[in-house]
C-alpha cells in the first residue's frame, strides 16, 4: 500500500484564455520508505506538486491521499494539525525562525502540537547532524550547510513518516550539497521515513530509489534509480 498517492491531480491558475496549467493530470504513488526524486525545469510544476502532496495548497481537481487520509477532504484546521504530525518540510531557503536559537527552532513543531519534547531523541538528532556545538546559536551565526542541517533536524523532530524537500540543496555549493544529502539519506533510513525531494541536480538523483521527470505539469518519464 503506497503511503502517499495522488490521482488525476490538477492545479489551474487564472481563467481561459489565460489559464495556467501548473499541474495537468498527475498520478503518483510513493511506497513507504521510498526515496523519490522529482526532477524538472523551473516552471514545470514540481513545486506545485510538492505543495499539494504536503497539504500546503488545494488542487483544482483530483485526490491526494497521505497515510490513509484524504487531504482534499480536510478543513484548513485539520490540514494544519495533519501536517504538524505527519509531514516534515525542508525548503531551499531553510525557513528558520531568526529570533530562536538552534535548539528552539528544532523543537518548535513539537511545542506547537502541545507535546512534551523527547529530549533523548532530540539530542540524538542534534548529535547525528553535527550540531551539538551550535545548540545555542542563532541561525544568522551559521553557514548555509549548517542552517539546512538545522532545518532537517526540525523536520525530524516530530517523527513524521514523510519528508518533503523542495530543492534542499538549491542554495548550497556542490560539496555542501553532498554532505547535506548524505545526512538526509542517513536519517531517513534510520527513522524509516519516506522522502519526496525536488531537485534539478542530476548528480544528486543518484541517491534516490526512483526518479520522476516532470514537464509542463505532466510526468514524462519515470525510472528506477
Amino acid at each position: 500500500m503506497p503511503i502517499l498517492s495522488a490521482q488525476g491531480l490538477k492545479k489551474y491558475y487564472g481563467k481561459e484564455p489565460n489559464i495556467v496549467r501548473a499541474l495537468d493530470g498527475v498520478d503518483i504513488a510513493v511506497e513507504s520508505g521510498e526515496f523519490v526524486a522529482v526532477v524538472g525545469m523551473s516552471g514545470s510544476g514540481k513545486s506545485t506538486l510538492l505543495h499539494m502532496l504536503g497539504g500546503l495548497d488545494k488542487p483544482t481537481d483530483g485526490k491526494v491521499i497521505v497515510d490513509g487520509y484524504e487531504l482534499t477532504k480536510m478543513s484548513d484546521e485539520q490540514l494544519a494539525i495533519f501536517r504538524r504530525r505527519n509531514v516534515g518540510f525542508v525548503f531551499q531557503n531553510y525557513n528558520l525562525v531568526p529570533i530562536l536559537n538552534v535548539y528552539e527552532n528544532i523543537v518548535l513543531p513539537i511545542e506547537l502540537d502541545g507535546n512534551t519534547v523527547d529530549e533523548i531523541f532530540i539530542n540524538e538528532i542534534i548529535d547525528m547532524l553535527g550540531l551539538s556545538e551550535k545548540r545555542d546559536n542563532l541561525p544568522n551565526m551559521l553557514s548555509g550547510g549548517q542552517q539546512q542541517r538545522v532545518a532537517i533536524a526540525r523536520s525530524l523532530a516530530a517523527k513524521p513518516s514523510i519528508l518533503l524537500a523542495d530543492e534542499p540543496t538549491g542554495n548550497l555549493d556542490t560539496k555542501t550539497s553532498q554532505d547535506v544529502l548524505g545526512v538526509l539519506k542517513m536519517t531517513s533510513t534510520k527513522f524509516h521515513q519516506t522522502i519526496v525531494m525536488i531537485t534539478h541536480n542530476e548528480q544528486i538523483t543518484q541517491l534516490a530509489d526512483r526518479v520522476i521527470h516532470i514537464e509542463d505539469g505532466k510526468i514524462v518519464r519515470e525510472g528506477r534509480g
Partner: peptide, 8 residues
C-alpha cells in the same frame, strides 16, 4: 577531502 559530516 573532509566535509563537516562526511569525508569524501
Amino acid at each position: 577531502e573532509t566535509l563537516p559530516i562526511y569525508t569524501k
